[in-house]
Design a binder for these strands. Structure first.
Lengths: 238, 238
DNA sequence: ATTACAGGATTGGTGAACAATCCAGCAATA
DNA sequence: TATTGCTGGATTGTTCACCAATCCTGTAAT
């Protein structure tokens, strides 16, 4: 019978560490509201009443306020003093800003394709394939999800947890814009092929071309959104 | 006597909008703790007692918890369930990650120098000059501040509010690392000249070279930090 | 049509309470 | 001596009740 715990066993357990953190109520409420806002349950502009939501979820106002603060911090809600929490109404300027950020991050990450691990490169292609499958089956909302995951996977080529997190937030904001737009088929169908092209370039390790393709891709998408999504910033054009 | 408010007056007022939002107590507490953590008042690993800080600042525990949640969200504090809030102890992996992110953002932004407004380009040079002045006067902590502002200004070349914010947070984290390191003179002095070079390239609009210089700059800085800052991730090397 | 003014509803913030959890120290045991 | 079991105290997690400040709506007055 062996004497004790070995070095290996310790490090094996250390890897499980993240699996046993139980989240606080505020965190779970945040997560819940986050998905609801992203899925479009609350249309932009809706006020999120403390009383109503607190009662619906069975949590106290104080706990709920912690959750609201977090949502505001990641721009999935906006706080107006003494008025309450609202689902944000993103402006055209926001769209442009998000795309600027995406070009910076995704473009830069794609360029690193050659140096990225093969695992993460194949992960990009996997998202493309799941998008193609969903399109073949006509499930266009899944296509949208796959598309967002594609871009997430591209950003992940940078191999930086902070970048991943940042990208997740940017794409969450983008969802707010998407689901007040036309149906996903019309918007996403043309990009399936371009995703495939970029994924192939990435797997091949041609970061240079992948970046160029991605940049023009993002520029096109931005133009297309701005053509139909015209919401002015508050204070300009009342 | 003119009849009423004109279009111009409205838009003039609209610009003042941001000046009259009064922050909530939680926000002000967050701001206060943020600067204190960044300035190094609480050394990494310190537990931030709800009772003690709440009493010191004269705010209730509930309000304080909102502030703590925000700090955790921007990684200036870490939350351990049922144990409390701690000033984070950044690991070598964190340093590497932050620099990966910086290369992505700052590198990409510097490349856009040619397309950026002259105002924002001159702003970069201004930070370099204030750094040089501080160095001449031997005020090395101001040199550090100027250096961080330099990088902030570089990122601002992207012309994206979200990028600015992101950069602000990344540099705030970096401060946590800086002030457990050696004195600022030794670290920052060699970079004064390099900042100047990069700033000149940016003002001239040569994004290509500015990016290249900045990337090798950041790589060197990362190496230099990692050479003396060796804190393993929890679970590896106890 | 604009202003003034109530009334009610909602948020901002506090303090107290209680359960759950963690931690340090001591005792018991092998 | 080293490990395990237990216990009391301290801190956090969460709720509740309360009050002041602010905002919104509708109505009355000009």
């Amino acid at each position: 019978m062996p004497a004790g715990i070995t070095e290996d066993m310790v490090s094996a357990l250390a890897r499980d560490r993240s699996g046993l953190v139980h989240a606080s109520t505020a965190d779970r409420v945040t997560e819940l509201l986050r998905t609801h806002i992203m899925e479009g349950l609350f249309p932009p502009g809706t006020r999120l009443s403390e009383e109503a939501i607190g009662q619906a979820l069975g949590v106290s106002r104080n706990t709920l306020r912690e959750a609201f603060r977090l949502l505001c911090h990641e721009r999935l809600a906006v706080h107006e003093m003494n008025r309450g929490i609202f689902v944000p109404v993103l402006t055209s300027a926001d769209v442009a800003d998000i795309y600027k950020l995406r070009r910076l991050i995704e473009g830069g990450a794609a360029r690193l394709a050659g140096g990225a691990s093969m695992t993460s490169r194949l992960a990009v292609r996997a998202t493309v394939e799941s998008g193609e499958d969903a399109a073949a089956a006509g499930r266009w909302f899944e296509v949208r999800t796959a598309d967002l995951r594609f871009h997430q996977a591209v950003a992940a080529l940078a191999g930086s947890p902070r970048t991943d997190e940042l990208m997740r937030r940017a794409l969450a904001e983008l969802r707010l814009i998407f689901h007040v737009m036309a149906d996903p088929e019309q918007f996403h169908a043309p990009y399936l092929e371009r995703n495939r092209t970029i994924a192939d370039l990435i797997v091949r390790g041609d970061g240079q071309r992948a970046e160029a393709d991605l940049r023009s891709y993002l520029a096109d998408a931005e133009r297309q959104i701005l053509a139909v999504y015209q919401i002015p910033a508050p204070g300009t054009e009342p």
